[in-house]
Amino acid sequence: MSTDEPTSSPAVAELPPEFATLMRLADLVTPMALRVAANLRLVDHINDGAHDLESLAKVTDSHRDTLARLVRHLVAVEVLAESAPNHFEPTALGELLAHDHPATQVGWLDPTHMIGRADLALIHLFEAVHDGGAVYKTRYGTEFWDDVSNDPTLGATFYDLMAHGQQRIFNEAVELHEWSEVRHILDVGGADGDLIATVLAKRPEINATLLELPGPAARARAKFEKAELADKITVVDGSFFDPLPTTADLITLSFVLHNWSDEDAVRILRNCTDALEPDGSLLLIECAEQSPAKPDPGFTSGDIRMMAYFGGRERTHDQWQELADAAGMRIVSVSDALAYGARVLTLVKS
């Protein structure tokens, strides 16, 4: 018997169709390439006339060869287009990396901006899941809110980005609510005052108080002075973990509680309960997923961010009801979804 007969090779497993999807979901190269592009202001420089690699390397103070490899990938993923040899233009997708674009996404990507910076803490998601806590401090040595409050540049980029997305939500929320019986609003943790300003634009006879930390409180005062609203709004420096500075027939909490653990959120809600006047109500503006069979990836992504940044969480309607019960309140209405999936939940004392 011949020993020279060919032997069969083991079969090579054919890649399943899901392989490409998994690799796309697992890719870290493209997200980081976008962050570098945002930080280098590549699209801004191209729009200003630096279309070739030599010009881009000079204006960004980058190594030409490594920049060329970055640009090549951005072309491959259709963020940039090479319209002629060594001549680059942003695509419609790439234009979102321009600082002056009305829907700019730079604040979410550039690590010199607060959220772009915070997202890099997700490299420690292993620890967050294992240990059950926030990991922003693991990355940077300080707490998220300390950086927002103590660093004027990071604080400004944070509140500007939040305002960019939340103003549409506030417009919709204000249109939904009946304001005729409201005399005094207390906006708890109201950043630099966009919600109160939106309310007073519709109902200028209402008086208002804004409670915030010193940094955003100062920004709010400046905005109210500029808008000639300072005589209608009292801005108080303080913490919502302390007893609130005044009572009100309407208290607003917009995108505050998702920043905090359940225990801390109940503390804040109890302070609001104590500050509500008889027959008063609390307007809570937050995402409130209705526990669908298939979770929304935007909701779950936001939830991971809240966990990693500061140990907070996005909550379903049922979870909001549990917090309300613990704070001596009950939910009496929930709006339809507004922009970005936000809802207005109206709470009253139990």
Rank of each mutant, 00 (worst) to 15 (best):
A308G: 05
T60R: 02
D119R: 12
I196M: 02
P278F: 12
V43S: 00
W320G: 04
L284G: 07
R315K: 04
P17E: 07
G107S: 01
H45V: 09
L338N: 02
S55G: 11
R221I: 13
E5R: 11
T7D: 14
T247F: 10
E314Y: 00
L282R: 02
D151R: 05
V332E: 07
L122S: 14
P204E: 00
K223S: 14
A217G: 07
L80S: 04
S62I: 06
Y136A: 03
V236G: 05
F240G: 09
L210E: 08
L186D: 07
H317V: 15
L93F: 15
H317S: 14
V135W: 12
G238Y: 06
T142R: 11
V235C: 06
A33L: 02
T273I: 07
D27G: 08
A11M: 14
I115D: 05
G49T: 08
E289I: 13
N271Y: 03
D296Y: 11
L125E: 13
A217P: 01
L34M: 06
P214A: 11
I206L: 01
A326Q: 14
P278D: 12
E228G: 08
P85I: 02
A128H: 03
P10I: 04
A37H: 03
D325Y: 03
S55A: 13
E78P: 04
F255S: 12
S8F: 09
T273Y: 11
A13H: 11
F126V: 12
D119C: 09
K294P: 05
Q319R: 09
V29S: 14
T60K: 05
T346V: 09
N259G: 11
A324I: 03
R315C: 05
A293R: 07
G193Q: 05
G107D: 01
A68P: 14
S281C: 13
F224L: 15
